[in-house]
Amino acid sequence: MTDVLPERLAEIRDEFLELPEPDRLQLLLEYSYELPAVPAEYEGHPELAERVVECQSPVYIIVDVDAEGIVAMHATAPAEAPTTRGFASILAQGLTGLTAAEVLAVPGDYPQSLGLTRVVSPLRISGMTGMLLRAQRQVRAKSAA
């Protein structure tokens, strides 16, 4: 499993799994603070972003694939939704810089491998899964174009 997963995503997963369960929430909170702002060209253009309806909070993602086939993921979520921001931050950090093929090869159950299901609840984790699947679909659409 470790060998198919891109390095950064594997690192993030191991970072979570090394911690006792209660401390994993704190790490997720740190990720939520690290979610970068979306690039200026997307600000005020909600039509360019895709709403992740699997998440309870209003979270939007934008996935770019550049001419070399390298992926960049951006996301916005309100400050009152730190769990969702944390999920978005993990995926933005883990997917940005990968090739389109690498992003598409990320297993759909990656969110469930972080050891967060019990501390966060399965329903909340499914929001992150929705985010990942939507990011992959955008990569598929944008690399086909």
């Binding site: 929430l25 704190q26 997720l28 909170l29 939520s32 309870q56 909070s57 400050a79 009152e80 939704a81 730190p82 769990t83 969702t84 944390g86 019990r118 501390v119 966060v120 609840s121 329903l123 909340r124």
Partner: peptide, 20 residues
């Protein structure tokens, strides 16, 4: 949100999460 309490809460308040 299960993490909202951690971003700041009323001093001395404890968290009770509905899901977990």
């Amino acid at each position: 949100d299960v993490l909202l309490y951690e971003t700041g809460h009323i001093p001395g308040a404890v968290k009770v999460d509905w899901h977990t």
